[in-house]
Design a protein around this nucleic acid. Structure first.
Lengths: 248, 248
DNA sequence: CCTTTCGGTTGATCTGAGTCAAGGCGAAAC
DNA sequence: GTTTCGCCTTGACTCAGATCAACCGAAAGG
């Protein structure tokens, strides 16, 4: 990871590279200065709403620390999570003035915001940034499509296993402690948030978590701390192809 | 729509603007020539596979005429459509050498392909193209997120109505014949393809189509030709907010 | 012309996940 | 220390959509 990967992020993004991103070809240090000039930080407490769908949004931002979610809500209250923002992920879109989704902090959250107008101008003059953004957006589109398969075709058990695998994987890469197959991590989501992610009810989430525990796929320490004995065993439950499908 | 919107497309893309896209700021005509130099056309018959997931893919492309789908398939055969490519839509991603999804022609199809290597180089030297691509990708991400809400939270009836509304809307904008509320169009998808789009079985699709007919929301002429008396009535069935939610 | 095939419809039945409802437990509040 | 509240679990029952199966009609192909 080069210093360029930090461009849209913050001083300590180094802690939290979820996905590896390609390194830029050229080095123009004044970009950083220009970005610095229009950036500011905002903090939110767990549970706080960052912005409501439809609200005026005059910034774009990237997550520094913590976790945020994008959700859509139907008139009658049915909710579907459509984005899970981890450190280094990006929110907002150049050329749009209203938020399209509810953005909520699920943990304490720090975001690095860029005022939209100057950011757009900078994007026009600095091809680099559009390219980085394109790359990130394409990654997110891939994630969304994986997610669509999950929502449309997987069983409740497979959905849960898939979500646990996603969290385990990112947690492992974060701590870069590739333990021999056993992994421990804290769930950053409540049962209800998991349900909104997976298109299930919270009762079904709870039942399937219990079932996976009963069947020895996972262990639970309290409600939030998960221990996965064997990641391979967990992966068997996801319904996914065994070969991780790492497309470059 | 300016001539720039056609850049990644083909001579007759003018026929098929599904979504309006912003017009570029500057006019550099040699871009067109450069793109022309690396492009070529490929035709496929309805039902033909353009490329299989995992296959080497040394081009990126955009749809000129016809419709293609992106689908993911699980080992046991469960299938989920994750993209519906209409004229002017883009496939492939710079910086990736393998296809991530099955791409299939559902109607006769003409694609405008660009050899990947030179396209990437061109993208490096022409900021313009990355910006267009970013914009298109963001649109697709939004569509994917709408789709996720559909897959995760809508009932079978709402799913069908939503799909019909999507097709009706694009068909209307294509023919730009904004009839007083009544619309006719041909379904470009089989019941099975609709099912793969919606995360349902084909039987459920068929039953819900019949139900919508019985309830006077739509009429059917043959199996494929749909008549929607009132788009508003159809929209009521989708579960979506009434205010179209046109975010700029 | 008959037969096969393909896409579609419809019925009967089954079942996975939703719904409704009753607790449990731990942390914060009083 | 006990009450409250938020989050989670579990049970009983229901139901939307899946599954299995029969059948229809149009087009293709011999």
């Amino acid at each position: 990871m080069s210093h360029h990967d930090l461009k849209l992020g913050s001083p300590n993004c180094g802690d939290c590279p979820i996905r590896h991103r390609a390194v830029c070809a050229r080095c123009e240090t004044d970009e950083l200065a220009q970005l610095d000039a229009i950036k500011y930080y905002r903090s939110f407490q767990a549970g706080q709403t960052v912005i409501w769908s439809g609200d005026r949004m005059d910034f774009v931002a990237s997550v520094v620390t913590g976790i945020a979610t994008l959700t859509q809500t139907m008139e009658d209250g049915r909710r579907q999570m459509v984005g899970l923002l981890l450190p280094s992920d990006f929110v907002g879109r150049p050329g749009r003035s209203q938020a399209a989704y509810d953005v909520t902090a699920t943990t304490d959250l720090v975001m690095c915001c860029f005022r939209k107008k100057p950011f757009e101008e900078l994007m026009g003059s600095t091809p680099h940034i559009a390219q980085r953004l394109l790359e990130m957006t394409l990654d997110e589109l891939d994630a969304a499509r994986e997610w669509m398969l999950l929502l449309g075709r997987k069983t409740a058990r497979e959905k849960i296993a898939s979500l646990l695998a996603i969290i385990a994987r990112r947690d492992a890469s974060l701590k870069s402690s590739v333990t021999k197959g056993g992994v421990k991590f804290d769930l950053p989501l409540t049962r209800e948030e998991m349900a909104d992610y997976l298109g299930l009810t919270l009762e079904t989430v709870s039942r399937q978590m219990s079932a996976l525990k009963r069947d020895g796929v996972i262990e639970l320490e309290g409600k939030r701390h998960v221990i996965v004995g064997s990641l391979d065993r967990l992966m068997e439950e996801t319904g996914d192809d065994s070969d991780g499908g790492a497309l470059v």
